[in-house]
Write a protein that binds this DNA or RNA. Structure first.
Lengths: 203, 203
DNA sequence: GTCTATAGACTGATAGAC
DNA sequence: GTCTATCAGTCTATAGAC
């Protein structure tokens, strides 16, 4: 009795889409089954419970979020300037493609921060150990700037992610349509790195 | 038979707390009744349905979010520099006090952006009509900067709000404790305005 | 206005046929 | 492995007593 990998996978991917879109509370296991094109009973056959399936989706979502950073931040071959360019671009494009991910994570983690500690393998405080952090600190010391590397890092992530998270709100107050908003995001791919480099006096 | 205003108010405030913390999907009307110290039937007596109560909470939450901006942005007596200082401070302090509000709004609006149009009185595109926007545009023209006022405004809000929204995530990856994080936010009250003024070459 | 009790619908999970 | 049918529990909403 070998488990059908493709069905198991199909259910998990459907679950990821539905959970990320609606959140745990509004998601119905029937919706996931329908989205996966299978029967409700099969979901429990493979994953035992809604909660267990959610935990798995949560873990993979957190790892996906980190994956946008890890490789760029620990590359010893690139300059800080190159890392800023690549990091902003990767974040904006990644979040645009999967715009439900960040809000899903932040919401569910606000309700239950324990998820971060339960299953995820990323070590606490891992940011400070990255190569990029050393580069930022070197630049801060060289220019005698009055803020820490964490502030800079948060600025990078804020300015890249926030416009995606606040999309409906921003569209409303600025009266941008779909096309204008896409242009707006496109512009930020070059603008955000410029502002960030200026903060570090890299230009 | 005059409606008991204090009970009606008590229920609405309890609903606001519970909805903002758990979201619509995870909120149980029993939780709201318990939080308000009344019986479940009384909730329906005053507000007819969970959905109707939610709509009211949603409307007031959106208006609360805007209230942080309106007065500052339309003040004709203050300079742009003063508006940046006041705006950042007000946003950071407001969101810290009520840290569930922004995530609640963004999540629910992602699920159903229609809420913005349904009941809220704030006009679409209202940002562009504020006095602060005219001041930003004047400065952009004067210094011949290559971005729009909307980008600047989004940067202000991003850097102020995002650290609150991403709090659990940030605490984890940086290994900050409660005290360190509070200091971190405190520092941003002065740092964020400095970065923003630098973007507009106001210093 | 406020309560208790309960109707009626929905949801997660399982039993059992194939 | 996959399905249909159904159970047991939970949830919103209301009926009816006071």
């Amino acid at each position: 009795m070998v488990r059908d990998v493709s069905t198991e996978q199909k259910i998990k991917e459907a679950a990821k889409r539905v959970f990320q879109k609606k959140g745990f509370g509004l998601t119905r296991t029937r919706d996931i089954a329908k989205e996966a094109g299978i029967n409700l009973a099969l979901l429990n056959y493979y994953y035992r419970s809604k909660e267990n399936l959610f935990e798995i989706v949560m873990q993979e979502s957190i790892e996906e979020m980190f994956s946008y950073l890890e490789h760029i931040m620990n590359n010893k071959q690139t300059t800080l300037t190159e890392k800023i360019d690549a990091g902003v671009l990767r974040y904006i494009e990644g979040m645009s493609k999967n715009s439900n991910l960040p809000l899903f994570l932040f919401s569910e983690l606000q309700a239950n921060p324990q998820h971060l500690f339960d299953r995820v393998k990323i070590p606490e405080g891992f940011i400070q150990d990255t190569y990029m952090f050393k580069q930022i600190n070197a630049q801060i010391n060289k220019e005698k700037l009055n803020f820490t590397a964490i502030h800079f890092f948060i600025n990078l992530v804020s300015m890249s992610i926030f416009p995606i998270i606040g999309q409906p709100f921003i569209k409303y107050v600025t009266k941008m349509d779909e096309k204008s908003f896409a242009d707006f995001i496109e512009q930020r791919k070059t603008l955000v790195p410029i502002w960030l480099k200026s903060m570090l006096k890299l230009v």
